[in-house]
Design a protein around this nucleic acid. Sequence first.
DNA 1: TCTGGGGTCCTAGGACCC
DNA 2: TCTGGGGTCCTAGGACCC
Length: 394
Amino acid sequence: MLQRWIAHLDMDAFYASVELLRHPQLQGQPVVIGGRRALPDGEPAADSPAWPRLRDYAGRGVITTATYPARALGVHSGMGLMKAAMLAPEAILLPVDFDRYRHFSRLFKAAVLQIAPVMEDRGIDEIYLDLTEVPGAQEAAPQDPHAGVRAVAQRLKQAVREATGLSCSIGVTPNKLLSKLASDMDKPDGLTLFTLAEVPLRVWPLPASRINGIGPKAAERLRELGIETIGQLAAAEPGWLAGHFGSRQGQWLHDAAHGRDERPVVTWRDPKSMSRETTFERNLHPRHDREALGVLLTRLADQVAADLARKQLVARTVGVKLRYEDFRIVTRSLTMPQPTADGPTLRRWAARSLRDIDLDRRLRLMGVRVEGLQSADAVPDSSALQVQESLPLF
DNA sequence: TCTGGGGTCCTAGGACCC
DNA sequence: TCTGGGGTCCTAGGACCC
């Protein structure tokens, strides 16, 4: 029987690190990535006033990533740029360049696949790997029973560095849940390996919120019940947890706190939904700005249609997401008689789904989402069946 | 002038069918 | 006429993650 070894590989401050490759003179500077601003011409020196500074930013947006020197000033991803500007006014602000990050993402994943072919994509900058059957992973040395898998992890880090010039942090344990925790224990450029036997020592002292799946709401409910750490969660009676969180989540909380997780590394998932959304430069009123909203709805529907076409998919359900100025979110959706990837058809059904929404409050965001996705070649093209009709809104 | 954009999964009620 | 379950689909909302 093989010892199961799962790795979680997490690129260090990924977007920021990719930007530092391009602008090496900014190494060691507080830099944040976010917003919609254009870059200065040329390559100014690190202390040049030509670089956009956080204090000069005006508008909506959040930090996508910050370099470690910027994090030391108290800013972090998800923080509003205006708030960050008060904490770190002199930090350099670079716009996001997703095409470039996707390029480096492909590079590091291709390099890793050469060593460990069982890979689960978890987004642009992190992956899970099943190392169990990687050659050498099961070998032991006299002074280190896990020398084999440790060496495999070192090779992964080296391969990522050679392919991209970037560092990553890796956690290696018997499952995904623990490896996700482990990869975060020694950042940046870390390698953390442990087994189930070390869970009490290494995991139980951590706050419960560090478990992937315990977010702000669940952490707060646990706190109200007197549970702060994973160890305290592990000590709670499963029946008592089920009483407070339901049998399903209660059991999951109990298992997670004991480091138990049998989920496999999944190399492929069929996409379930696709969406496009946009936050407006200024809030828009459903009636007063009806024309502008109509143009935006058309654009979003066309973008989703193009995304579907690119992946050769069609959708049965289309919906709209609205965020009001008070941040309340409403969603409406409709299932169509035929699946489609046709932009005007998606737009028509999206608009129709909005029949009963509140027209008296200003909006700050609108999005279009499709689900019920199927392969396009399994379904006849229904665009010939479109019917013209009047629209209730926009 | 707080708070982006793209996803997954879960819950829950009502419709509808057997 | 009244009383049942179970299963699936549709819709809306919410928690959570990167």
